[in-house]
């Protein structure tokens, strides 16, 4: 089933709101990450609003699909999506990073219902997702497990330990999404002053996953319609785990943040926030209005 154009527009609208909430929350907290949450926003929106079989009002529903944000430093994007999906009040996003808040800097499953795993030490969430998917196989449960990693995160050795095990156990109920935004925190040196190069070229990343026995597909991670289609078709793999390499832009949606590694975890000033929110404002559509 493909999305209707109205469905696509709705997802795009939600993703824009996610981006606005991310920026407001980080600006208020004066801490947190920006670049990664913005690159992941469309994929997270597609997952929670169009792919995952979940019940926000019953977050521990045993048959729910599972999602693990292995790139846990993008937590604020996940929180924004969960709030908009109805897991908790949107107003609570303003408590992000505060002491005592359920919205910890990195996802804490003990603090916030709806999180299927704690994560944040890179690579670990991926292993846990493999365990969840393996458990589903052993118990003959039909739910699916989705896990999102960063391309920088794929530097971690544990990712490849896990990729091997997932292939060995034929975990076709597991879908990994690599948010390939091309930038890490400080990055690999490229040409020129502060020149930077991506952790992996497209071919390198594709070949690594394929070599580990995964079914590999690629998608424009900001085309929500394509992302939904990729997530849905990846679920249909048989006998091997699937990875979707999502080509994304770090800082996506705000012109002066895009492709700039300095926005990995920089806090916007009031002026920068206003400019960013203006760029992310809802476009005025014909016939709209009170």
């Amino acid at each position: 089933m493909t999305l209707t154009s109205e469905g696509t527009r709705t997802l795009e609208q939600i993703a824009r709101q996610v981006r606005r909430e991310v920026l407001k929350a980080v600006a208020k907290a004066k801490a947190g990450h920006i670049g990664g949450p913005l690159s992941a926003a469309d994929i997270l929106t597609a997952l929670y609003f169009s792919v995952l079989n979940v019940r926000p009002e019953e977050p521990t529903w045993p048959e729910r699909d599972r999602f693990v944000l292995s790139k846990g430093h993008s937590s604020i994007a996940l929180y924004a999506v969960l709030a908009l999906r109805g897991y908790f009040p949107v107003a609570e996003l303003s408590t992000f990073d505060e002491i005592g808040s359920r919205l910890q800097g990195h996802p804490d499953m003990k603090a916030l219902p709806g999180l299927d795993m704690s994560s944040g030490a890179l690579g670990l969430g991926f292993s846990a997702a493999i365990g969840i998917a393996l458990g589903a196989k052993l118990a003959h449960d039909r739910f699916r497990t989705f896990v999102m990693l960063g391309d920088g995160e794929c530097n971690e050795g544990i990712v490849w330990e896990g990729a091997h095990v997932a292939q060995r156990y034929g975990l076709d109920n597991l879908v990994a999404i690599v948010d390939k935004n091309q930038l890490q925190q400080f990055n690999w040196r490229g040409d020129g002053p502060y020149g930077r190069r991506a952790p992996y070229t497209d071919a390198e990343l594709r070949q690594r996953w394929a070599a580990f026995g995964w079914s590999v597909s690629e998608v424009d991670g900001h085309d929500v319609e394509a992302v939904v289609a990729a997530l849905r078709s990846a679920r249909e793999g048989v006998g091997q785990p699937a990875v979707i390499i999502a080509h994304t832009v770090k800082g996506k949606g705000v012109s002066f943040m895009e492709n700039n590694f300095r926005w990995h975890s920089k806090v916007p000033t009031e002026e920068e926030l206003a400019a960013a929110l203006a760029e992310l404002a809802e476009p005025v559509t014909e016939g709209a209005g009170a």
Binding site: M109, D116, M117, G123, L124, G125, F126, S127, A128, A129, I130, G131, I132, A133, L134, G135, A136, L138, A139, D141, I158, G162, V165
Partner: peptide, 11 residues
């Protein structure tokens, strides 16, 4: 890590 995931689904 796999063990942790298995524990979350009741093993």
């Amino acid at each position: 890590g796999v063990a942790a995931g298995l524990a979350t689904v009741g093993f």
